[in-house]
Nucleic acid binder design. Structure first.
Length: 142
DNA sequence: GCCAACGTTGGC
DNA sequence: GCCAACGTTGGC
């Protein structure tokens, strides 16, 4: 099982909307590196939900429910999307500023590749972030 | 609102 | 194939 981070601008799609929808297709990715990450996802993988631009914090966790399939919003047919769902809010959202000042998270792609919208998270970093976010264990309560 | 990072486009 | 111009993302 792998861990990921998904970015979304809350003005276009917020975690509150995610909680309302329960499940959604993660469409609109138009960057090849991000698309390759989508292709590597497996059902059961978990992903942090990060609010970019407005908020700049990790606000929750979602589960990957379906492997990559063609994104109908892409006319070229090259880009893909996955289905995500089962949103769980973070007891304590983790701000970007806090992430930046945590030595164990120094190598997060979030800090190094600020424009990448879908990125992998290492198991150790996942654990650190879950702890910071107020989850009691690595397993997320549902 | 500004600007850095970075991807894409198009002229040569 | 190189590189300048331009557009977009996202932090500040």
């Amino acid at each position: 099982m792998a861990y990921w981070l998904l970015k979304s601008e809350p003005d276009s799609y917020s975690f509150a909307q995610m909680q309302h929808d329960r499940r959604t297709a993660w469409s609109g990715v138009r960057n090849h590196q991000a698309a390759n990450n989508l292709r590597a996802m497996q059902p059961g993988d978990l992903a942090f939900f990060y609010h970019s631009n407005t908020g700049r914090e990790i606000v929750g966790v979602v589960e990957i429910l379906r492997t990559a399939y063609p994104d109908p919003s892409d006319a070229s047919g090259k880009f893909v999307m996955v289905d995500v769902g089962k949103p769980v809010p973070m007891p304590q959202p983790i701000g970007l500023a806090e992430i930046k000042t945590t030595p164990a998270l120094r190598d997060l792609p979030l800090l190094k590749q600020s424009r990448l919208s879908v990125m992998p998270i290492g198991g150790r970093e996942w654990q650190t972030l879950c702890k910071m976010g107020g989850f009691k264990t690595l397993g997320v309560k549902r």
